[in-house]
């Protein structure tokens, strides 16, 4: 059976996502100290990139859409940074 390139791409992406799921569960049972959370979030970010690139086809979308997406992340970053500048510094004397 001849498969289209898109079919292989979707199957590869799904396989990679399930592999990363297994990796994130496995990594949680190894004591990495504070790096457990960092590893988990890094794997989540990798999954997000796979979904954005191969399922949502972000590279084929127009630049105006990249701006819309980047704006969402940018203001999320501002919300997080400003809030954490409070929460993380409350203990400072």
């Amino acid at each position: 059976m001849n498969r289209e390139p898109a079919t292989n791409r979707f199957l590869f992406t799904a396989g990679a996502l399930l592999g990363l799921l297994a990796l994130t569960v496995g990594a949680a049972y190894v004591n990495l100290g504070p790096f457990n959370t960092i590893a988990a979030l890094t794997i989540s970010a990798a999954k997000t990139v796979l979904i954005l690139v191969f399922f949502m086809e972000i590279r084929e979308r127009s630049p105006v859409i990249w701006v819309a997406l980047a704006t969402g992340f940018f203001f999320f970053g501002i919300m997080f940074a400003l809030a954490m500048s409070d929460f993380l510094t409350r203990g400072w004397k």
């Binding site: 994130t24 569960v25 049972y29 988990a40 989540s44 999954k47 979904i51």
Partner: peptide, 15 residues
């Protein structure tokens, strides 16, 4: 969900 999953289920599972 990809972000919810580790933050809910995988906090300090090793200990």
């Amino acid at each position: 969900w990809v972000f919810l999953f580790p933050l809910i289920y995988l906090v300090e599972r090793h200990s």
